[in-house]
């Protein structure tokens, strides 16, 4: 029996890693303002050697303070959203599951808006209140949506979940509007927050994202075998000895944390978590041992490219990244859907 099959083959890993690094390099090199490649190398070299920044160099600031932290944040967000999408699609055996289709992203927004409207803050850490509320609300939403879905239809069929997700999103957006009206003095702040973007990302954002991704993504990856069992069917998972309740709880918490952090930093970005796992599954197959790490890379690449387009297509204007992801994501999704229909994949 070929025992190397289940894991991630070193060569595949290398290819994914290389693709991510190349995309990363392209995204750092290209941008709204053109910086010659030679200058880029000099700037990075100087900063690695901790040499003082040359006074009066706009390129230096643009590259190190604006572009680099943004590309890092975008890559981490893409990875986090794809991993959570893949985990939910496996857990619920539902190829349409994703933070946005399930209403988790809306739930996270609700938490953040509530925090802003009622001034919930954590002393000493401005804006942390928003992030924590977003995470908590994402978790409550996910639990609520799933328990409702289980009540209606124990098999958690695709239609039921998506229907509940859509209804929940609409319900939440009405609550958000209501809160906005109640907190009239915070209207502008809420409006700003809702259109939150990854522009202006800082290294501090990147650190928060990296730590969350490392911890939650790591926990999800240790549950790859259980996710495989869930992807075959929850009953089968129980029959072969998976602690279904506990695994479900672990996945729900980690996914909520990932989505909550992403939403509180970059706003809701659709389609990444939905489309990337489908594309990756076409390469690696459905086994989560390979799918999850590949999704981390694939999601990072997808979102970095989407962000590159957002930054450069209408230069000097900037497009909201969600416009790019929804546009390309929807087209890709239709393509994948038809292709997999023809091949008999779900």
């Amino acid at each position: 029996m070929n025992s190397a099959r289940e894991g991630f083959r070193p060569l595949t890993l290398l290819i994914f890693l290389a693709a991510s690094l190349i995309t990363f390099a392209i995204c750092v090199a290209a941008g709204s303002v053109r910086i010659p490649p030679a200058d880029i190398i000099t700037i990075i070299w100087r900063s690695v050697r901790r040499m003082p920044a040359p006074a009066d160099s706009a390129a230096y600031s643009i590259l190190l303070s604006v572009r680099l932290p943004r590309v890092i944040c975008v890559a981490l967000t893409g990875a986090a959203l794809s991993i959570s999408g893949a985990a939910m699609q496996g857990l619920l055996r539902n190829p349409l599951a994703d933070g946005s289709t399930l209403g988790v992203s809306s739930g996270a927004s609700l938490g953040a808006v509530t925090a802003i409207a009622f001034g919930i803050t954590i002393p000493g850490a401005p804006f942390a209140g928003t992030a924590v509320c977003a995470m908590a609300s994402a978790f409550v939403s996910l639990t609520l949506i799933l328990s409702l879905a289980y009540r209606l239809d124990f098999s958690l069929s695709t239609n039921t979940i998506i229907l509940i997700g859509v209804i929940y999103s609409m319900f939440v957006s009405s609550i958000i509007t209501f809160i906005t009206i109640l907190a009239a003095d915070k209207v502008r702040q809420i409006a700003f927050w809702t259109m939150g973007s990854l522009s202006g990302s800082t290294y501090a954002n990147a650190r928060v994202l990296a730590v969350t991704l490392f911890v939650c993504g790591g926990v999800i990856m240790t549950r790859a075998r259980e996710l495989n069992a869930f992807a075959i069917g929850e009953d089968n998972a129980r029959h072969i000895g998976v602690n279904v309740g506990r695994v479900k709880l672990i996945i729900l918490i980690t996914v909520s944390a990932l989505i909550g952090v992403c939403v509180s930093i970059g706003g809701t970005i659709g389609f990444v978590g939905l489309v990337t796992p489908h594309m990756i599954r076409m390469i690696t197959g459905p086994n989560h041992n390979r799918l999850l790490p590949a999704c981390a890379f694939g999601g990072a690449v997808f979102l970095m490219l989407a962000d590159l387009a957002a930054r450069t297509v209408l230069n000097p204007l900037e497009l909201p990244i969600g416009v790019v992801t929804s546009f390309t994501g929807a087209i890709l999704f239709v393509y994948i859907f038809f292709k997999s229909r023809r091949n008999g994949h779900a």
């Binding site: 099959r5 289940e6 496996g90 055996r93 539902n94 190829p95 075998r225 495989n228 069992a229 992807a231 075959i232 069917g233 009953d235 089968n236 029959h239 072969i240 000895g241 998976v242 599954r281 197959g285 459905p286 086994n287 994949h345 779900a346």
Partner: peptide, 23 residues
């Protein structure tokens, strides 16, 4: 347990499914 009819959501290979029996 062997159920009446197992529906599978994704394209797992037969071998992957059998191996899960050792979980």
């Amino acid at each position: 347990v062997l159920s009446q009819m197992n529906l599978i959501g994704y394209a797992f290979t037969a071998e992957e499914i059998i191996r899960m029996g050792r979980y």
